[in-house]
Design a binder for these strands. Structure first.
Lengths: 217, 217
DNA sequence: CTCGGATCTGACGCTGCGTCAGATACTGTG
DNA sequence: CACAGTATCTGACGCAGCGTCAGATCCGAG
């Protein structure tokens, strides 16, 4: 797509400017990872990018705009995750697919941790742009999950009391939030693999309605 | 409990000061509800409370300290929720208890929406104090849920692959996060009651392992 | 009424934001 | 290679809000 980058004044920008803009974005990501949102300052970003603070405002109307741009790039890595949610998941053995999905989603989270946290932060804080960025990002996965619930209901495995979309949202909510406080859960003595196994089981059970063996681990 | 309130300099404060502190807290909550965290300013709070900005700092080291104090008070309303998670949930009819819990928890959320959102926001943002506040708040519920999972596992209804604590955390995560973006879910055409029904079903299924009828709604 | 501690406050210095008018770099043209 | 014209960058500024401090005010005890 020929998505021409624009400066804040609306003009289409050239090579040099694109490079500058990118340096600013890189610096933003670095600082975000290192110090968190709270200590993120335009002055620091500009300095690290070797530019004057005023330059920053030439490409981003404010800090949020830059972070928003970063979270758009994270989206690229989310798209492939859709593959894992390819129906049908119709036999107990398909729990492998759920496991693979949880694993992949977890990796996606660690790769983009800093940005995703802030995106959700801002979205929950009510920021309209971040809300719609998140919705857009989750929509693909959400739709797949909802389709699975519907399929499960048609096969009379999944309770009719589940609203497919709400159930899908619940699963996303569970995954997202749990990955955001992984550290805390971990501190309580739950290993990463136990956590993944738990998420996998709940996800598979909820989306497909297929019972998981209760006795063997 | 004789929890003496302290000023930031450590001295125990008297009647007049307690009243001032409370006026500041009230004003903080008001503004938080009206304008959100981002526009929360010490100047405004002080003005609304009829005090000088400097007074604010006599009782709270900064804005966060005040919000933290607010979220401690929300805790009082969370404690009674434990009742709903009284085991055993052992027959299909006990889904009523799950329903009641979801309902009560949802009300708890709407009552304290503004504060809870910010508390989670700050906790996810890495703030240590808010993290531990949240942990403390959730611990009671978490423990109950984990106990249910364990019981379900002993009855061989719940898969052994669930880590009780991780599963409990997953359920809390699902509830919390879904209540934070209720509005968004609602906008997509899912009614509040459909959402509650969905959460109830997932919660009951996951904690007890008791199958929910798949055909009738 | 007077004193001493408790409580409050005005005024200040500082940091970081976002804006402008103008400086500088680059490109194509003759 | 000089020059015009555009693209890009910047220093300097005014402003908002934070957090501090020295001193003013309040209030009960004696």
């Amino acid at each position: 797509m020929a998505d021409e980058l624009l400066a804040t004044d609306g003009r289409v920008i050239g090579e040099r400017a694109i490079a500058t803009r990118q340096r600013l974005l890189d610096a933003t990501l670095d600082l975000l990872r290192r110090d968190g949102v709270l200590d993120l300052k335009v002055v620091d970003i500009s300095r690290d990018a070797g530019a004057a603070p005023a330059t920053f405002y030439q490409y981003f109307s404010d800090l949020d705009a830059a972070i928003l741009a970063l979270s758009e790039t994270a989206l690229d890595d989310e798209v492939p995750l859709v593959e894992f949610l390819q129906p049908p998941w119709s036999s107990a053995a398909d729990i492998e697919r759920a496991r693979a999905f949880v694993q992949a989603y977890s990796e996606y989270w660690s790769d983009h941790y800093a940005v995703l946290i802030v995106r959700n932060l801002k979205a929950d804080g009510g920021d309209v742009d971040f809300r719609s960025a998140r919705s857009r990002a989750n929509l693909l996965l959400l739709r797949r999950m909802a389709a699975m619930v519907t399929a499960g209901q048609e096969a009379e495995r999944v309770p009719a009391s589940l609203d497919p979309f709400a159930a899908a949202a619940a699963m996303m909510a569970m995954l997202d939030r749990l990955f955001t406080y992984q550290t805390e859960v971990r501190r309580r003595g739950t290993s990463k693999s136990a956590q993944h196994e738990t998420l996998t089981t709940i996800l598979f059970q909820t989306l497909t309605g297929i019972p998981t063996s209760s006795t063997s681990s």
